[in-house]
Design a protein around this nucleic acid. Structure first.
Length: 644
RNA sequence: GCCGAUGUAGCUCAGUUGGUCAGAGCAGCUGAUUUGUAAUCAGCAGGUCGACGGUUCGACUCCGCCUAUCGGCUCCA
């Protein structure tokens, strides 16, 4: 007998070798039908796997991540079986469950090309196989047995994977005619995989290495019920409605021109207004925090970037140097503001009493991003960083770092960005070649970040190998409408540039010392930030940011005079207002203004003209009642005051 | 940069096997309508069918190359 502990801490005895499924069955038949995975002492298992020891367990139904993982992982295997039956001889890379669904990287051979239209065929085959209720069976094998199996099958990718594994017990999972190297867990059988949709086919380098072969990656999603799939697809469609590229066009915020060049955004008047409001908001915050604005040119001598190390690191993949009419003079479009700011620091002497010095600039930089990488405003070739560089003494570092965290959190809060992750990016300990600077400085810098975030109680994830080449960083990441992660705010500790630029300050000991530099950008880039803001708000910006705050909609031409009067008064209060004087029906005017996401619609007709009032309609909510002019001004002002 | 897809009017999209197939809705313009809470009606105008080359008697349609965009991969100072 084994003692099984349930999540509520109750303990029951079962026969040795009982499976999760059987335990579920002993509780209720309906549970047994729904249970998809089981956690056994922190490990996630197949529900069919025998339990031979005392254990605490948790049974997982569809709603749990563990179940979804098993479900999608099993779906990936099902897809692999379908692919193998349609394209015999296909070799398989990896096929994991992901956050939403699953994928499999396959190599169907050089003569075969799987395209979008083939997905339907594969999907159909999967559905056919799923109805056969094929059991997923688990088999423990030794490394050499596994190697033998895949050598016989002729699957070089699996062989490579196995060879990289330690010589321990491996597991193979089979269903129908398909067997895969896999840790599991899986569903008992294919039957629950009822609703399947293969979403896209894409290339993906084997093991993420661009020097290796590109495999065909097929993305899919599956659910136990058709309705769930439909809901998911609907949700995807809805998310697309928030796409900043679409809203940016609709609301006339920005555009691109092929003649100007790809990845070079053109800010339209309304977008420029929005951006400038964000900039002045941050400028004000920065002034309060002791930052000093500086301004630097868009280009700099090539030598500047040789000194900074950027040229060696990125020179080949950058916009190439601009040449002057004189020979041997080369300038680069600046890819970063820091070298310029270092030169500003060098323009005078500093005592320890002067530090920290904080230079801030909305600096426009140009980077030659790979063509396949460009994406709306989130990945562009010319963008403006809300950049600043803090030069401080070693004992000021942690405090300064913390103050930057405060600014970022304040901004995120003001803009209602609650759903972000803070990521600490450290050096890859196995590939120090990628970085510049001494081990000692790296260790100090990394320790400073870890200490500061710890002190702040900031919840962070640590990513090794994600650091910048000159220093570790703390990044604030947010997701876009369809779940892609983007880096917004960033704080980076840098011991290297002060060294390279030979920056100094005079300490209390009257000796020269090297300051430490913090690079920081709370928004990251104005372009990317606005993009994410658009997706976050679906174009319904907070009142203080909205390019147009209110629109007056006269019922007919008779009320234009009154409307003008209201407009002038509102403009006197700096409430950004316009009038829709078109000879259209009020319904039409409301609709058009709603679609433009103007926060307040002010309807004026006979009643309002006589009473000296306005009928207020809130975007997305409808009529919120009639107000006197002063009431409305107060209403708007208090809303703005609440927001910032 | 790599894999795949797409590119028809300002926007969203139709366009059957190459031969009056250059179309629709919205937006725009003109006129009428003067309207009470999400689309008033009518008329007009709009496109070197992404660019360049080729096949053909004939190309939006087929082929090649380029370019841009989209979804991934790699990259992201």
């Amino acid at each position: 007998m084994v003692n099984i502990t349930f999540p509520d801490n109750s303990v029951r005895q079962f026969e040795d070798g009982i499976s999760g499924l059987e335990i579920a069955k002993s509780l209720s038949n309906s549970l047994a039908r729904e249970v998809l995975a089981i956690t056994v002492d922190e490990e996630i298992w197949d529900v069919t796997r025998p339990i031979n020891k005392d254990a605490s367990i948790k049974l997982h139904k569809w709603g749990d991540e563990e179940s979804k993982h098993a479900f999608w992982h099993s779906s990936a295997h099902l897809m692999a079986e379908a692919i193998e039956s349609i394209y015999p001889g296909t070799e398989f890379g990896i096929g994991p469950a992901i956050e939403n669904g699953f994928y499999y990287d396959v190599d169907p051979g050089d003569s075969v090309q799987i395209t979008d239209s083939d997905l339907i065929v594969i999907e159909k085959k999967m559905k056919e196989l799923s109805t056969q209720k094929l059991a997923y069976s688990r088999k423990e094998v030794t490394k050499s047995e596994a190697l033998e199996f895949f050598t016989e099958k002729g699957d070089e990718y699996k062989i490579e994977l196995i060879n990289d594994l330690e010589d321990i017990e491996l597991t193979l999972y089979s269903q129908g005619n398909f067997t895969d190297l896999c840790r599991g867990p899986h569903l008992p059988d294919t039957a629950p995989i009822k609703a399947i949709k293969l979403l896209s086919v894409a290339g993906a380098y084997w093991r993420g290495d661009e020097k290796r072969k590109m495999l065909t990656r097929i993305y899919g999603i599956s659910f136990p019920k058709q309705k769930m799939l439909e809901e998911y697809l609907e949700m995807l469609e809805k998310a697309k409605e928030r796409d900043h590229r679409k809203i940016g066009r609709e609301l006339e915020l920005f555009t691109f021109s092929q003649r100007v060049g790809s990845g070079l955004p053109l800010w339209l008047p309304k977008g420029a207004q929005l951006r400038e409001r964000l900039e002045s908001f941050l400028k004000k915050v920065q002034l309060q925090h002791g930052y000093q604005p500086v301004i630097t040119p868009h280009i700099g001598q090539k030598e500047l970037y040789v000194t900074s190390g950027h040229y060696e690191k990125y020179g080949k993949d950058s916009f190439q140097p601009i040449k002057t009419p004189q020979e041997d003079e080369e300038f680069l479009l600046k890819p970063m503001n820091c070298p310029h700011h270092c030169e500003i620091y060098k323009s005078r002497q500093f005592s320890y009493k002067d530090l920290p010095v904080r230079y801030a600039e909305f600096g426009t930089v140009y980077r030659y991003e790979q063509s396949g990488e460009l994406h709306g405003l989130t990945r562009v070739r010319g963008f403006t960083q809300d950049d600043a560089h803090i030069f401080c003494t070693p004992d000021q570092l942690k405090d300064e770092f913390n103050k930057v965290i405060d600014i970022i959190l304040y901004i995120f809060k003001a803009l209602d960005f609650q759903d972000f992750t803070a990521q600490i990016s450290l050096r890859d300990p196995d590939d120090k070649e990628k970085y510049i600077g001494s081990d000692e400085n790296w260790e100090k810098a990394e320790a400073a970040i870890l200490e500061a975030t710890n002190e702040k109680g900031l919840e962070t994830v640590i990513e090794k190998g994600e650091a910048a080449f000159y220093g570790p960083k703390l990044d604030f990441m947010v997701r876009d409408a369809i779940g892609r992660k983007w880096q917004l705010g960033t704080i980076q500790v840098d011991y290297n540039l002060p060294e390279r630029f030979e920056l100094e300050y005079v300490g209390s000991d009257n000796e020269k010392h090297r300051p430490i530099m913090i690079h920081r950008a709370p928004f990251g880039s104005m372009e990317r930030f606005v993009a994410v803001l658009i997706e976050h708000t679906a174009g319904k910006f907070p009142l203080w940011l909205s390019p147009e705050q209110a629109v007056i909609l006269p019922i007919s031409e008779k009320y234009h005079d009154y409307a003008e009067k209201v407009l002038n008064s509102l403009n006197n209060y700096d409430i950004r207002t316009l009038i829709d004087k078109r000879a259209e029906s009020i319904g039409r005017k409301i609709r058009d203004s709603e679609l433009k996401r103007i926060p307040y619609l002010l309807i004026v007709g006979e009643k309002e003209t006589e009473a000296g009032t306005i009928a207020v309609r809130k975007q997305g909510e409808g009529d919120i009642g009639t107000m006197k002019f002063e009431e409305f001004v107060e209403f708007i002002q208090s809303e703005v005051a609440k927001q910032i």
